[in-house]
Simulated scan of single mutants.
Amino acid sequence: MNTIHSSIRHCGSSASFLSLIARDVLLPFSTRILLKQIAPLLLTLGLSQTATAASRCDSIITRDLERCAKENFESSDRKLNVAYRTLGPRLSPQQREMLLASQREWIIYKDKSCRSVYNGTAPGEEAGIEKWTCLDELTKTRLRELQYVDFRY
Rank of each mutant, 00 (worst) to 15 (best):
K112F: 14
G12L: 04
L87V: 05
T62S: 10
D136A: 02
K110S: 13
T44N: 02
K131N: 08
K140E: 10
K110P: 04
G12Q: 06
L20D: 15
L135P: 11
R23Q: 12
E137R: 07
Y148A: 00
Q95T: 03
Y84E: 01
L41F: 10
L26H: 03
H10A: 13
I61S: 03
S19C: 14
L45A: 05
C68L: 00
W106M: 07
S13V: 02
P40D: 07
T141L: 12
E137A: 14
E74P: 14
C134W: 07
R63L: 15
E105P: 13
P93H: 04
K79C: 04
S76R: 04
R67I: 14
R152T: 12
C134M: 01
S30R: 00
A51K: 02
A54G: 08
K79Y: 13
S19P: 05
V117E: 00
Q49T: 11
D24G: 00
F73G: 03
G128Q: 00
K140P: 07
A53D: 03
Y148N: 01
S48H: 07
D24E: 08
L26C: 14
G12M: 09
E97G: 06
R152P: 02
T121E: 01
S7E: 13
T121L: 10
V82R: 02
R115K: 15
V82N: 03
R85P: 13
I107A: 00
L80E: 05
A53Q: 02
D64A: 00
S6P: 14
L42A: 13
T62Y: 02
N2R: 11
V25R: 09
R32T: 13
L143N: 05
Y109G: 05
S7H: 14
A51N: 02
D136W: 10
C68H: 06
N2Q: 07
P89Y: 12
I108G: 09
Y109V: 15
K36N: 03
E130N: 14
S7G: 04
C114Q: 02
Q95V: 01
R90E: 10
G120F: 08
I33D: 14
S16R: 15
T141Q: 00
I129Y: 00
L138M: 05
L99D: 11
K70H: 05
S75A: 10
P123T: 02
D136G: 01
A54D: 01
R144S: 04
L138F: 01
L43C: 13
K70T: 12
S76A: 08
Q37Y: 08
